[in-house]
Design a protein around this nucleic acid. Structure first.
Lengths: 338, 338
DNA sequence: GTCACCCATGTCACCGATAACATACCCTCC
DNA sequence: GGAGGGTATGTTATCGGTGACATGGGTGAC
């Protein structure tokens, strides 16, 4: 076995250059689509790439150019499977289209230390940008050091130094849901919110409150869940004990099913006794009993828009990416005539 | 503004070395935990790192060492939100613990071209290992070229050249579910499977078939869905027309809710007329009506195990990571006395 | 005709960590 | 006391692209 056979090294641009009879720099320009390359030369280079079985070395590019062409995505491991998956897919899709890779860092809970660790891990990888898809409770200096250095887009309304915030209008979702119930004739709308640490939850709650206020109704005290069906169930048990409740806006589908279950166990039927609207519109919403009326948001589009915002960098007009829409099903109805 | 102020360059190991009064190589050794470093020297180095605000440059390490300390994860964008999220979290957690980053590539459908693209993208990033969490329908030469070069673990039973396969026992899940129905006294068990391209789906179906065969029962023709609740609904409409059906094993929770909905619309109640078992045990399973009896699998553990297998490399004893367990709820009951 | 400029391409240093090798020192054992 | 071996550290070349600058031929304007 001679050394030619042993040779494990992957072909480099220099090898391609030799085959094509040009310099390595020209290969680099040809591959990056520089305008100043003779079409004929480009053709020869591409043929040589094919022939050599050349594969691009992104570490070398990152080292010499200082840009890794990688975007870091921070996710929360628990809760909101649906939206998380959709955001991830949207980010990856838009990033891939722009020639960027996506590196993820998952945190298991909303903890400052975990968040710092996740950001540090991504920063160590030299990501060119950050998409933060979890709410930042409190922002520490360490976190700001990182988001100050690296362009950052936050996906749920919280802010750090230097971070842009993508305008997802969660308030609008709350407004639409609440207005639907008012339109049906309900005189009061209760609310089961997400955890207070989530900006998302706060915004939906604010939308609900604004909508009631606009109608001249004083909002009842909101009940707080943690996005899980179990927490919805527990809040539902409380709601079931309050006879005057005829309509509830629940901040997520999963919690809504918990609420419905608790109501039914206590003999309150949905939607005859109590109407329920929620937010998310997961695939199951239409198939569980009763089919859920829910506000749908395009999380894939949010993920993609975050990347676009990150890569453009200059667009200041942060218009809403997509507007929430209501899927009306069978969990809402006019209140019983009194 | 003099050049000292302007200086944007991040501190490098050489800077740290200067501060600590050692060579860059010693800094490298100290940071990587080489045993041959004087504890006092290490302390000085760490202090210097702190003082300089040094951040590791992984591109440089990747270039010089040839290893990127990154694992590529291939995911399917559609279907199975829950298991996908859990696998991702498991992979990221185990990888992070071992000092590896995770880079994702999502494909929007089970398409050979998309799969090749995803693998190529990850290969271009120079990942040290691949975790493939989607079933490989057919394996092309291009795909084998990549998985031949890069250590690969496949998470659902399909195989490529050089790829290890993590032993998730999907057949066992099918067996447990079916056996539960037989134990309740059902004489026949029907099956709504996942798409045939998914090894996962095939294995669950095989487990179902084996279990029936062991009981001396001839399996009825399986109905095929696509994991979505809607497809379960359509198959459920067919099942509802077959009076003799008393028990159905559905390959996923989401499809199961579709089946249940269809049955109820046709006047067949669950579990009185028809018992339903499924696989996944998502959080909602316990809160929809009826609470679903389902086989639970620890996808987080699978994801973590895939990484361990990838990084160890030598462990040949591929024992099952965790065994599926049955969560018995209210969608199953003994058949009506005839 | 010549100056200016554009275009296609080449040359070379450099990014920052690490592998490979070299060195200096200390210890132990025959 | 010299050979042998281990430990802590330094020196140098290298990984593979790319930025900055250089080069040389072609074109248009005055």
């Amino acid at each position: 076995m001679n050394e030619d056979t042993v040779r494990q090294r992957q072909p480099s641009m220099a090898d391609v250059a030799r085959i094509a009879g040009v310099s390595a720099q020209t290969v680099s320009r040809a591959l990056r689509g520089s305008p100043n390359v003779n079409p004929e030369t480009r053709r020869r280079v591409l043929a040589a790439v094919e022939q050599a079985g050349y594969r691009f070395n992104s570490a070398a590019r990152a080292l010499s150019s200082g840009r890794s062409h990688t975007i870091g995505l921070v996710l929360l491991a628990s809760g909101g499977y649906y939206s998380r998956s959709a955001v991830t897919a949207g980010v990856e899709s838009a990033a891939g289209a722009a020639g960027y890779a996506v590196s993820i860092a998952t945190i298991s809970a909303l903890d400052v230390g975990l968040m710092e660790g996740a950001l540090a891990r991504l920063a160590d990888q030299g990501v060119d940008g950050l998409v933060i898809a979890v709410p930042l409770i409190s922002v520490t200096k360490k976190m700001e050091d990182i988001t100050g250095d690296i362009p950052t887009v936050t996906l749920d309304g919280s802010r750090t130094a230097g971070a842009r915030v993508l305008g997802i209008d969660q308030m609008e979702a709350g407004r639409i849901a609440t207005q639907h119930l008012l339109d049906l004739g309900h005189r009061q709308v209760w609310h089961v919110s997400g955890p207070d640490e989530w900006i998302e939850a706060r915004q939906r709650r604010q939308g609900w409150r604004d909508c009631l206020e606009a109608a001249g109704i004083e909002a009842p005290p909101p009940l707080e869940g943690d996005w899980s069906p179990g927490s919805g169930y527990r809040q539902g048990q409380i709601i079931a004990m309050i006879p005057e409740v005829t309509a509830v806006f629940v901040a997520s589908d999963e919690m809504a099913f918990g609420v419905i279950r608790a109501l039914r166990e206590r003999g309150r039927s949905v939607p005859e006794d109590v109407s329920i609207v929620s937010v998310d519109d997961i695939a199951l919403a239409a198939f569980c009993a009763p089919p859920l009326t829910a506000v749908r948001q395009d999380f894939f589009a949010y993920g993609a828009a975050a990347v676009t915002l990150l890569l453009q960098g200059d667009t200041e007009g942060e218009e809403p990416v997509s507007t929430p829409t209501l899927s009306v099903r069978s969990s809402t109805a006019p209140p019983r005539p009194q």
